[in-house]
C-alpha cells in the first residue's frame, strides 16, 4: 500500500503528512528539553550558590561550536533551497557541508568533555556539572541523530531524487526542520550554561 500524501498536500491540513508528523515530534522534543531546562531552574534556584558558567567552562570553544551549528543550519536550508531550484549538485554540496559541520561540532564537544574528564570533572562532581553533562549530552545525541538522517539523504537516500523529486525535497525539508530545532536548542543552551 502506498503511503498517502508524501508529495502532495492533504486537503484538510494543507500539509504533506510528514510535515505535520515532524512538528508533532518537535513538540514532544520541546517538552523533553523543557523538562531538563525546568530541572535546571529548580536546581539553580534551590542551590545556595551557583557558579558562573564562564568560570568553569570553555567559552571560546562553545562560541566556535555556536558559529559551526548556526552555519550548518544555513547550509541545511540552502540544501533544501537547491532542490527547490532543481540543482541536485548544489544540494549534495550543501548537505555535505551540513554533515561536516555536525562532525566538527561533535569533535569540539568531545575535546571539551575530554578536558573536563582529565580534571576528574564528571556528572557526579556537583549539580552544575550534572545538569551541564545531561543537557549537552542529550543535545549531542540529537546531533548524532541528525548526522545519521542527513547522511542517508546525502548518500543512498538521494536516489529518490530521480524517481520522486517532490517527495525527496519534502524529506529534506523535514530533516531540515529537525536540524534547525537542534540548532535552536543550542542557541538557548549556550548562554544558559556558558554565559550565566
Amino acid at each position: 500500500m502506498q503511503i498517502p500524501y508524501t508529495a502532495t498536500a492533504r486537503p484538510d491540513t494543507g500539509l504533506f503528512n510528514a510535515k505535520l508528523g515532524i512538528w508533532l515530534f518537535l513538540a514532544s522534543e520541546v517538552m523533553l528539553f523543557g523538562a531538563l531546562f525546568s530541572s535546571y531552574i529548580l536546581l539553580r534556584t534551590a542551590a545556595p550558590t551557583w557558579p558562573h558558567g564562564y568560570d568553569l567552562l570553555n567559552v571560546p570553544l562553545a562560541l566556535l561550536n555556536t558559529v559551526v551549528l548556526i552555519s550548518s543550519s544555513v547550509t541545511m536550508v540552502m540544501s533544501w533551497a537547491s532542490l527547490m531550484m532543481k540543482d541536485f549538485k548544489k544540494y549534495k554540496r550543501y548537505m555535505g557541508l551540513t554533515i561536516l559541520c555536525a562532525f566538527i561540532f561533535l569533535v569540539v564537544k568531545a575535546i571539551e568533555y575530554g578536558m573536563k574528564f582529565e580534571h576528574h570533572l564528571l556528572p557526579s562532581t556537583d549539580t552544575f556539572y550534572a545538569i551541564y553533562f545531561t543537557l549537552t549530552g542529550l543535545h549531542g545525541l540529537h546531533v548524532i541523530g541528525g548526522i545519521v538522517v542527513n547522511s542517508y539523504f546525502w548518500g543512498p537516500g538521494s536516489k529518490m531524487w530521480e524517481t520522486d523529486p517532490q517527495r525527496f525535497t519534502n524529506r529534506v525539508e523535514i530533516a531540515g526542520l529537525y536540524w534547525h530545532f537542534v540548532d535552536l536548542v543550542w542557541i538557548f543552551l549556550f548562554p544558559v550554561l556558558y554565559l550565566l
Binding site: L15, V30, M31, F37, S38, L42, T45
Partner: peptide
C-alpha cells in the same frame, strides 16, 4: 494546524518553566 500545535506546546512549556 501547525500554529495550533505549537501554541499548545508553548502553553505547556511555560507551565514547565514556571513550576520550579
Amino acid at each position: 494546524v501547525i500554529y495550533y500545535t505549537l501554541l499548545l506546546t508553548l502553553i505547556f512549556f511555560v507551565v514547565l518553566m514556571v513550576l520550579p
